[in-house]
Amino acid sequence: MIEEILITARDNAKVDPYLNIWTWEISIYLFLGGMTAGMMIFAAWAVLAKKDDLAPFASNKLALWAPIVLSIGMTTLFLDLEHKLYVWRFYTTLQVTSPMSWGSWILILVYPVAILQVLSTLRAGYPKLAQLAERLPLVTPVLDISESQKRRIALASIPLGIGLAIYTGILLSAFSARPFWNTGILGPLFLVSGLSTAAAFVLLATRAHAEKLLFARIDIGLILVEMLLIALFIVNLTTGSEAHLNAARLILGGEFTLLFWGWFFTLGLVIPLLIEILEVRGSRLALVTLGPVLVLVGGYLLRQVMMDVGQVSTWTQYESQYDMQLLQRLER
């Protein structure tokens, strides 16, 4: 056997005893970033496919929420930065090998397009808000132009939405130092999860029965694809090297098994899938609203699980004899 012990003091904040650099701020950001992407894609799809009658909320009202949700996510992302005054440094360079650098530029492109999506649907979706806004100078011509370019804006929104959602996954998967994350499947997985949470948002927000049924059907498909991607993710880990196998053990019998399978997979995917199937089959049970709520919970839990397990999965693990509390007792 081999036992490796740290014999000098090492209590580096957020690194020891195991990595804990990213917490809820990043989980929330990844969750809301994915949801924003899904909202942009669905809003654009509804416009391009001319779904005004069948999906009135997605066609005209959904777009407004994308920049709002993204802004909340960007706020928590900012909260995570340790050297906040230097945030502008993201925008003085493009580092081609850094997914985070790509992501910061994708966000710069996403924002104006998301806002154009709002402007192009504002009069149809929120007439009172549009009236209020039109009291300001220049708003009327801006709305006119945006409406005339509605399809072009929608066409731009789809690749940007896909880029935003996939980047949130690739951001993690590009870290070879964290075996649990180190698979490109995280890109598509986060995209499908983002679409699913956006569909759940529509299900909660719309009052049109036909739209509810349409999005419940879409979400059922998305949840099934998400489950398939999870299966591929597990296959990838369990057929990997020693470092990947150790990472897989964390959710296959290890300390995160309950969080992954009990909370995320069962509560966040299986149960809402069953509820949405009931809804599509015509059940009028009060619990149908619980379905999309659980999809949102599941979407967040996916990011939280990834954050927690990914940071514990590592190439190096030492036992530490150093106990910070002993030092604190001395200082007293």
Binding site: N12, A13, K14, V15, D16, L19, I21, W22, D80, L81, E82, H83, K84, Y86, V87, R89, F90, S98, M100, F175, S176, A177, R178, Q311, T314, W315, T316
Partner: peptide
């Protein structure tokens, strides 16, 4: 002067050798 404290480098180090 260029570091935002995003901590990507800490996650990227397989030796956990970086610190804030």
């Amino acid at each position: 002067g260029k570091c935002t404290g995003c901590k990507a480098c800490i996650a990227a180090c397989p030796y956990d050798a970086r610190l804030i």
